[in-house]
Design a protein around this nucleic acid. Structure first.
Lengths: 130, 130
DNA sequence: GTCAAACTACGAGGATCCTCGTACAATGAT
DNA sequence: ATCATTGTACGAGGATCCTCGTAGTTTGAC
């Protein structure tokens, strides 16, 4: 009777529990915004280890948790890995267009700075947004 | 030779200096989001004293400064008062649709909570967004 | 000059946040 | 069972943030 079948469960806020202020705060950090952009560009769930971030593993865990607790991403264990996926549909139902708009704004800012912070591969990926 | 004609000048970030992270952070606070919503609903410049906020005057000044330094609002002195106006056009040029989307999200959340935090007059104002 | 109104500056308290290092837990393969 | 992989927990340091009170500045009216 130690631990049944459930491997490791993570708490997520219910859709109705998601607060706009928390979402905006979650997206207001450069590292987290980068994570979200990569997740959006990938269109799939990605493991934490997939990300190459300018912070340590501990800090990475922290940022993923902030995103999860704000309701921006969903996390599920898959073997030793933990898959992260955007809660795009839910967010869109709650705050129509918010995520896409922020993502577009981030792309625009990135392009303006001419930096190499592009999340996907080429900086000319955008065209189809829906 | 103490002070020429300039009454009191305030520093604002140039349009190109505005950072998405700073804007999102500025909007992630409940008090500031409320200020922005009222400003958007008013469609005019409003003095600080016009706002009835759950914080002291000192704190109000602080929040207005955060909004100004993030590039969300523009502040100008007008006699003893200080008029605040949204930098909507500039923000929209930089981050298309961002402000409107956040404003709509805030309205949606407000409506969901059934609270009396409505910025304008009636809670049924939305219809024409552009 | 005097007075009221509107806002700021400064400093402080307390909370939250970002970052890290080290130690630990869970899974899958050997 | 042993080991490597993946990610967590805990605690701590340092920065930033929100809030306030008090004192001070600028403007306009009397």
């Amino acid at each position: 009777m130690t631990t049944p079948a459930s491997p490791r469960l993570l708490e997520h806020p219910a859709r109705e529990e998601i607060r706009l202020e928390a979402v905006l705060h979650a997206l207001s950090d450069a590292v987290r915004l980068r994570i979200v952009r990569e997740l959006a560009a990938a269109r799939t769930e990605l493991s934490c280890s997939h990300f190459v971030l300018p912070v340590t593993k501990s800090t990475t865990t922290h940022h993923f948790r902030v995103l999860r607790e704000a309701g921006v991403i969903r996390q599920d264990y898959r073997g030793t890995a933990k898959l992260n996926g955007l809660r795009g549909a839910e967010l869109d139902a709650l705050f129509p267009g918010l995520l896409d708009t922020v993502l577009a704004a981030a792309d625009a800012q990135s392009a303006r700075e001419g930096a190499g912070e592009a999340p996907g591969a080429s900086p000319v990926t955008a065209t189809a947004s829906g």
